[in-house]
Amino acid sequence: MNNKRILSHGLNLGPESRPTSTASIMNHVLLALFPGLFAQFYYFGTGYLYNLAIALFAGLLCCLTIALAMTSTSEKALSYASPTPKHRFPGSIARKNISPILLDNSNWVTCVLVAIALPPNMPILIVTVAIVSALGLGKYIYGGLGQNIFNPAMVGYGVVLISFPSDLALWPPVIEGLSGATPLEQLKYNSGQTVQELTAGPAFGTLAGQGWEWINAAYLAGGLYLIYQRIIGWHIPVYLLASIILWSAAWYDMGSSLSLGSPVFHLFSGGIMLGAFFIATDPVTCPSSTRGKIYFGLLCGSLIFIIRSWGGYPDGIAFAVLLANLCVPLIDHIHNIND
């Protein structure tokens, strides 16, 4: 049924359900990423433009290859099905199959997410490996849009994080002349300083790391825009952030030298807002029932805190989301109805 025709009959659906298309949902997501992107440019410079350019170019090539591969297989299937394939002219088939892959915009979202998750000025090789793993291993190996069980961007990021750990630890300082360690790393490897002493250092701003707090605030703004537009639900981000607050409050230890950081510090450090609003909420890979979403958010938040505090990596968004994705079928099995 055509949405437009129903609207012309004057159907009153309420504000939460404006008819949209898949492509426009993805456009909203791209738009909502803009403030965060801008903040990252501001603090880390043009290195991100470079990342983005490589990621999008690699993404384009990757999509074209996948589309052509799918076309040739579907052409084979066609020729098996009927002795005289209707679409003799390969161009027409190619256009038919490539256009949905390129035009639903979900792949661009994946590419942008990978590009901004990586530190700036990454070598071409690493960005390309990340993009190819994200689209190939994370998405099209499962059958494409809507079929994957892991978040594609996080699959790509996870692959390069494991394969090139030293390159991915290279975050440039926000302010000239500071050491390269991110605030999260400083907290993790703090040498007997209390939180008070630590946050007095030049790498820290009012809430969390200098610069990082603004990047997170910008992603928070973008996320709120998505919730306002009803592109994502509020359950996952709210419960994810709530569980981080709970965990960090429990281990805050009043800011002693053994403290794992204050709740505010955790909320505005690393990629937490990006993860909470843009990555964990990926509808394809999160549970469908409301209660399932609550569990998913709590699980993601807990895993993020656990990896940050006791794991081998300073930040744990990618692995936390991937692990939580693994649990989604079980969550869906237990809570499969909104009652």
């Binding site: 939460e16 359900s17 949209t20 898949t22 949902i25 949905p100 639903d104 979900s106 494409g144 849009l145 809507g146 079929q147 009803r230 592109i231 639900g233 509808p283 394809v284 999160c286 469908s288 029932s289 909104n338």
Partner: peptide, 11 residues
């Protein structure tokens, strides 16, 4: 198009 499980239907 494929379903992206956006959940608008469930809402």
């Amino acid at each position: 198009l494929p379903c992206i499980r956006c959940g608008k239907c469930a809402t």
